[in-house]
Every structure is written in C-alpha cells, then in structure tokens.
Amino acid sequence: MGLEMRVLLVLAMAICLPSAAYAADGTATFYTPPYVPSSCYGYQNDGVMIAAASDAIWGNRAACGKRYRVTCTGATNQGVPQPCKGTSVVIKIVDYCPPGCRGTIDLSQEAFAVIANPDAGKIKISYTQV
C-alpha cells in the first residue's frame, strides 16, 4: 500500500473516532405505574420502556425524548448477589426525577426488570445515547 493510501486510511480512522459511542457510568433505580402524567409529555402514553432523568442528564428538559441504551454493570451494595441479567434496554426519557433522586436514571419498573433483578432496588449502570 502506498504512502498516500496509508495517510488517507489513518485520516479516515481519525475522523471516525469522535463519533464512537461513549458510555457514561451512573446508577439506576425504578419507579412504578402510573407513568402519566410525565414532565415531558403530559398525559401521552409512551409505553413502558421509559425513564425519568436526574439533574445529571435532565438539562432543563433537553433530555425529553432522548433515547439511551442502559446496561446493568453491578450491584451498588457490597455483598449483594449480582443483580445484572447481562442484557441492555433502550429507554426514552419522558420525565424528570427531582433533586434527591436516588439514581442517574429512574427506569420504569418494566425497563429495570429487563436488565436487573428488581429486588436490587438500585444498580450500577453504563448508558449511551442512541
């Protein structure tokens, strides 16, 4: 491969790097129905794969409608059996979890159950906007 072709290949790879997904770490809790009204959409029913955003991602309603892939990464309490199910879930932000919120993302009960045992109550997560 010629030098020019190698330079172009390296440049193409460098340009693509910033678009690589960055997963943030946080915690998740869950809330139970009813899920309406919500801060973002009032009485609109957005299903059950939804969540409320804490101040960490709320951004004065900027988080409304954004979708995140959430993966359980472990227990928040020492000595608790592994709560994670080894899966991830894509949720839509539809609500606000006010100051004092126990997690970065407050998942619907159904979304939480996809990725972890609800008996855990609070889990460590990684999340990426999709």
Rank of each mutant, 00 (worst) to 15 (best):
M1A: 12
M1H: 08
L3P: 04
M5C: 11
R6K: 14
L8Y: 08
L9W: 11
L9A: 14
V10I: 15
L11D: 00
A12M: 13
A12I: 12
M13C: 15
I15Q: 08
I15K: 08
C16K: 11
C16L: 15
C16H: 11
C16R: 14
C16I: 14
L17R: 12
S19E: 13
S19F: 15
A20S: 10
A21D: 07
A21L: 09
Y22H: 14
A24D: 15
G26L: 09
G26M: 09
T27W: 09
T27L: 10
A28G: 11
Y31S: 09
Y31Q: 10
Y31P: 05
Y31K: 08
T32P: 00
T32F: 05
P33F: 08
P34N: 09
P34D: 09
V36E: 12
V36D: 07
P37V: 09
S38C: 10
S38D: 14
S39I: 06
C40M: 06
C40T: 10
Y43N: 15
Q44G: 04
Q44L: 12
V48G: 01
V48P: 01
A51P: 04
A51R: 03
A51L: 10
A53F: 03
S54Y: 03
D55P: 07
A56I: 07
I57W: 00
I57G: 02
W58D: 02
W58L: 03
G59D: 07
G59Y: 00
G59E: 06
A62G: 07
A62D: 14
A63G: 04
R67D: 06
R67W: 07
R67V: 12
R67I: 07
Y68D: 03
R69P: 00
V70K: 03
C72L: 09
N77V: 13
Q78S: 14
Q78C: 04
G79I: 05
G79L: 05
V80A: 13
Q82D: 15
Q82F: 03
P83I: 02
C84R: 06
C84D: 06
K85M: 03
G86P: 04
S88P: 00
V89L: 09
V90C: 06
V90K: 04
I91A: 02
I91D: 01
I91K: 00
I93D: 01
I93H: 02
V94F: 00
D95W: 04
C97H: 02
C97D: 08
P99V: 05
C101N: 02
R102D: 13
T104A: 06
T104S: 09
I105D: 01
S108D: 04
S108Y: 04
S108V: 08
E110L: 00
A111T: 07
F112K: 01
F112W: 05
A113Y: 02
A113Q: 08
I115Q: 02
A116G: 08
N117F: 01
N117D: 15
P118V: 14
D119G: 14
K122P: 02
S126A: 15
Y127M: 10
T128H: 04
Q129W: 08
Q129Y: 10
V130S: 12
V130A: 13
